[in-house]
Computed example of a mutant assay.
Amino acid sequence: MTTPDADPSSERSRTIHYQVPGKDKRAPFARSGLEQLQAVAAGEAPAPPISSHIGLEIVTVGEGDVVMTAVPDESHYNPIGSVHGGFFATVLDSVCGCAVHSTLPAGVGYTSLEIKVSFLRPVTADTGPVTAHGWVIRAGRSVAFADADIRDQEGRVLATASSTCLIIRPAACP
């Protein structure tokens, strides 16, 4: 959409390519969370579709510890010309959730219960790639807690998050 003042030559478009998740909702639960994430990182399993929207990629995955990268661009801008907080919230929710997921055995799932995000620095397309690091603080039988941050290429912290995830045992998994 262009406004009367907008320069039509500045209009851009973006195409998103992703794989539709399989119809068998139980298939991902055949592996542990760590095995699932390692398969995605190695390109042996498709990344979740949300990854395509924000250029999110797994860099490293260990038990309770995940690092991802994302590339903010102009398509993520809010009305004041900086990257929308939803970009950060999505990246931080993903890295926290995956850190929790990496601790789960086969047949067990999770879902986010809550996330608190603190925005510390503005980000624009000129910021370049950002790195998100998520780690588990405490993993219980029914709830897990994770923290995360996003940093720019110089290592400056741009945003932080604390997350609570519900652990879903086999009887409740899809």
Rank of each mutant, 00 (worst) to 15 (best):
R31N: 10
A42P: 00
V40H: 00
S51Y: 13
A41N: 03
R26D: 02
H17A: 11
A45E: 08
G62W: 00
K25T: 09
A42G: 07
K23M: 08
I58A: 05
A47E: 06
G33C: 05
K25V: 13
V59P: 06
P48L: 11
R14N: 07
G62K: 11
P21M: 05
E35D: 15
A42E: 14
A39G: 01
I58T: 07
L56W: 07
A30C: 03
G62H: 13
A42C: 09
V40L: 04
A47K: 04
Q36V: 10
V61K: 03
I58K: 01
I58M: 07
S32M: 08
I50H: 08
E44H: 06
S51I: 01
F29R: 02
H53N: 11
P49Q: 11
A27S: 11
S51A: 15
L56I: 15
V40W: 02
K23S: 09
G55S: 10
V20I: 11
P49W: 12
S32F: 02
A45F: 00
H17Q: 12
R12M: 12
V20M: 11
S52A: 15
G33P: 03
I54Y: 08
V20K: 14
L56M: 15
E57P: 00
I58E: 04
E57V: 09
P8L: 14
P21K: 03
S10K: 14
S51N: 14
S32R: 05
V40E: 07
E44N: 12
G22F: 06
P48A: 14
A45N: 03
P49L: 11
G55A: 13
G33F: 04
K23H: 08
S32K: 06
G22S: 10
E35P: 00
P48G: 10
P49A: 09
V59I: 12
Q19K: 06
L37W: 05
E11N: 06
R14A: 13
E57F: 03
S52R: 07
S13E: 15
P28H: 10
V61Q: 05
E57M: 04
R14G: 03
P49I: 13
T15N: 08
I50A: 13
L37A: 12
D24W: 10
L37G: 10
H17T: 14
F29P: 01
Y18M: 07
D7Q: 14
F29E: 03
K23E: 14
D7R: 14
R14Q: 12
V40R: 13
E44P: 00
S13W: 07
A41D: 02
I54W: 07
I50N: 04
A30F: 03
S10D: 04
L56C: 05
K25H: 10
D7Y: 09
G43Q: 04
S10F: 01
A41H: 04
A45S: 10
I50Y: 12
P46Y: 03
S52D: 11
A30D: 11
P46S: 09
Q38I: 08
A42I: 13
P48S: 11
